[in-house]
Lab assay of single mutants.
Amino acid sequence: MAAAAAAGAGPEMVRGQVFDVGPRYTNLSYIGEGAYGMVCSAYDNVNKVRVAIKKISPFEHQTYCQRTLREIKILLRFRHENIIGINDIIRAPTIEQMKDVYIVQDLMETDLYKLLKTQHLSNDHICYFLYQILRGLKYIHSANVLHRDLKPSNLLLNTTCDLKICDFGLARVADPDHDHTGFLTEYVATRWYRAPEIMLNSKGYTKSIDIWSVGCILAEMLSNRPIFPGKHYLDQLNHILGILGSPSQEDLNCIINLKARNYLLSLPHKNKVPWNRLFPNADSKALDLLDKMLTFNPHKRIEVEQALAHPYLEQYYDPSDEPIAEAPFKFDMELDDLPKEKLKELIFEETARFQPGYRS
């Protein structure tokens, strides 16, 4: 834990890192770190609560700039109880001085990944967590956004079992017609939660990839272990087919990539493993919904509104309290091709509203 900075004593240090967030945020305490930044909790002297502050230093890398800009653009436009918001952003007053960006968010005690390492969940908890994931996802999908990296560590939890989806750095506007060349190379989302079509096709992607990830998360809540822990690309596919069985001819016809289709045709026939054999203690309604989410063919996979209306979630289902976005989200430009200098300018502009004396 960093010592509390005395008023006016300059930035606090946390594990050798400068955290320049005073005077409003003090009493910093280390939480963890990701690929390009550290997260601390801090005391907000204005709202009198502890908050989470993520320090991001992305400006050396085009990919990190892209992810940072995506996350900020999306989260500043989203407003939903099951999606983490941005409360404040701290950065230098000029673009030349801006080396880091500090993002202030609600402090959540833990995440689903940490929880599943230590606790076996009751059916009631599984049901409530799944409902909140789908409630947040309904809003995301209504904005025409794909999260693309749903996994237990991106689901934040607090002691009252509130759940918030975080990390929109890989999110995209849904565009089933656009052929994202190089899709697989830039697709760094965790393999275990990846839909089979991501490994088999490169053309376009749809909201059904997020539903697949939610199915993987439900299976993990039922058993405290990942359902498809593939060691590499082909191993991942083999794990999936080992449980779902061989795809039907109709399902194979959806695979545009001939090499991928021929690979699947070359494999020995596998039978589907019954879900109640894998999860003998699970609620039968939970397994019915799991089956509809972990469907090989993305066109037959359940959609988020149908999933919310499934009998497993009937005690929570309330369409009048499951809000959607006001308007579909649009990125003005494809960020993939922009140089990091341009992305830095866009991050600077996007964060201006939090600067003292800002006038829109």
Score class of each variant (00 low, 15 high):
L170A: 05
G245E: 03
P23N: 15
K285G: 05
A307Q: 06
C254E: 13
Y193S: 02
R191W: 07
I103F: 01
T160E: 06
L222E: 05
E345F: 15
S284I: 13
G245W: 03
I84V: 10
K164S: 09
K342V: 13
L75Y: 15
L146Q: 01
V46C: 12
E12D: 00
R50G: 06
R301M: 06
Y316Q: 11
N45W: 13
M221H: 03
S142R: 13
G242Q: 10
L265S: 12
G215Y: 02
D288H: 13
R172C: 04
D106C: 15
T181D: 10
I72Q: 04
Y139Q: 06
R24A: 13
A282T: 05
M293F: 13
D167A: 00
L28Q: 00
I240F: 00
W192D: 03
E197I: 02
A9C: 15
R77E: 14
E303K: 02
A35N: 03
D149R: 02
N27A: 11
R50A: 08
V104A: 10
P229N: 09
I89K: 10
F183T: 10
I31R: 14
V273G: 14
T351N: 06
T110M: 09
G242E: 11
G10P: 12
D235V: 01
Y263D: 07
E96G: 14
I165Q: 05
Q132C: 08
L294I: 10
N158T: 03
Y193N: 00
I53A: 14
P356M: 15
M98I: 00
S320Q: 12
V18L: 07
N276P: 11
S266N: 06
A4I: 15
I347F: 01
E305A: 04
K99E: 03
I165E: 04
L137Q: 00
H120K: 08
S284P: 13
F348H: 11
H299E: 07
T26H: 07
N224P: 12
Q315L: 01
A6T: 03
T94E: 09
R135V: 13
M38L: 00
I217N: 00
E197K: 00
E350M: 14
K164W: 10
G85Q: 13
F78E: 05
L290F: 07
G230V: 01
N154I: 00
L346I: 11
C127Q: 09
K340L: 08
N158A: 06
E326K: 02
P23K: 15
L313E: 03
F78Y: 00
L346K: 10
I95F: 00
E220M: 03
K231A: 11
C40M: 14
A352L: 13
A174K: 11
L184H: 03
L69Q: 01
Y30F: 01
D100W: 14
I90F: 01
V39G: 06
I302G: 03
A352F: 15
R225Q: 12
L346F: 15
F331M: 15
L335W: 05
N276T: 13
T94L: 08
P11V: 05
K231E: 08
R135T: 14
S153L: 04
A286L: 08
S246D: 15
N257S: 03
L244C: 13
Q119Y: 09
V14I: 04
D283T: 15
D321L: 11
L115P: 10
V173D: 06
V273N: 15
P323H: 01
G242Y: 11
R277Y: 12
S248I: 12
Y30I: 10
A174M: 14
E60P: 15
P23E: 15
N47C: 09
E341H: 14
H269N: 01
Y36E: 11
E322H: 15
S266H: 12
D44Q: 11
A195D: 00
D321Q: 12
K259Q: 02
Y139D: 09
L184N: 02
S213T: 09
R91D: 14
A219C: 07
T181L: 04
A325P: 14
P298Y: 15
S360G: 07
C127D: 10
I53L: 10
D337K: 13
I347K: 01
N224Y: 00
F19K: 02
K99M: 01
I243V: 09
T63Y: 05
Y312P: 04
I243W: 11
L184P: 02
T160R: 05
I209G: 03
A92N: 15
G136P: 12
K231V: 14
A52V: 02
I255Y: 05
F354G: 06
R79W: 10
N82W: 04
R135Q: 12
P298K: 05
D20G: 12
D88G: 13
T110D: 07
Q97N: 13
L234C: 07
I90Y: 15
H269Q: 04
A307E: 07
Q355Y: 15
H239S: 08
K270Y: 13
L335P: 10
P226S: 04
D44E: 00
H269L: 01
K54N: 00
S202L: 02
H239K: 11
L75D: 11
M221A: 06
K54G: 03
L157R: 04
P176D: 04
L146Y: 11
K99D: 04
P23T: 03
L218D: 02
T68E: 10
R261M: 08
A352N: 12
K151G: 03
R359W: 00
K99H: 07
M199K: 00
A92R: 14
Y102T: 05
N87S: 13
R225G: 09
N276K: 01
E303T: 14
E326M: 12
K138Q: 05
A327D: 02
S208E: 10
K55N: 00
H80S: 13
D175A: 00
R79Y: 13
S41E: 13
S223R: 06
Y317L: 10
A6F: 15
M98V: 15
A143D: 01
S248Y: 01
I240T: 09
G357N: 15
S284A: 09
G10C: 07
G10Y: 08
K342I: 00
E322C: 15
H310A: 12
G230Q: 12
I227F: 00
G8A: 10
H147P: 04
R225Y: 15
I217G: 03
F129R: 05
A260F: 06
Q119D: 13
E96C: 14
L287H: 10
E303M: 13
L237T: 08
N271C: 09
C161W: 09
A6N: 15
L170P: 04
P268R: 11
V46Q: 13
R50Q: 10
L258D: 09
F296G: 06
L278E: 09
Y43P: 09
Q62D: 04
K292P: 04
C161L: 10
H80D: 12
K138V: 08
E71D: 01
L112Y: 06
G85E: 13
L115F: 14
S246H: 14
T185I: 03
K342T: 06
I240Q: 09
P298Q: 14
E314S: 12
L76S: 14
G37Q: 04
Y205A: 05
D251L: 03
C216S: 00
K285C: 11
T68C: 15
E81L: 11
Y64P: 10
S246V: 12
N257A: 10
T68N: 05
C127M: 06
I84F: 00
Y312S: 09
D88C: 14
T63W: 05
N144H: 10
M38S: 07
K73H: 06
T26L: 07
K117S: 13
Q62S: 10
E303S: 11
L308C: 12
P298E: 15
P323Q: 14
R261Q: 01
V49P: 11
E334C: 15
K73G: 04
N82C: 07
L234K: 11
L75R: 07
H180V: 04
P229D: 08
C40T: 15
P226A: 06
V46R: 12
Y187T: 07
H120E: 09
P311A: 14
D111A: 00
N262P: 08
N253I: 00
G37V: 00
D321M: 12
K203A: 04
F59A: 14
G245R: 02
Y128P: 10
E322K: 03
K330R: 04
N281L: 11
V145C: 14
F348Q: 09
P298I: 13
I217C: 12
K151W: 02
P339F: 13
A307I: 15
A219V: 03
N158P: 03
Y233R: 03
G16K: 07
P229C: 09
D124N: 00
P93V: 13
L163D: 06
A2F: 14
E12G: 07
L267H: 13
Y263E: 03
M333C: 13
I165Y: 06
V46I: 05
I95L: 05
K231S: 11
A42M: 11
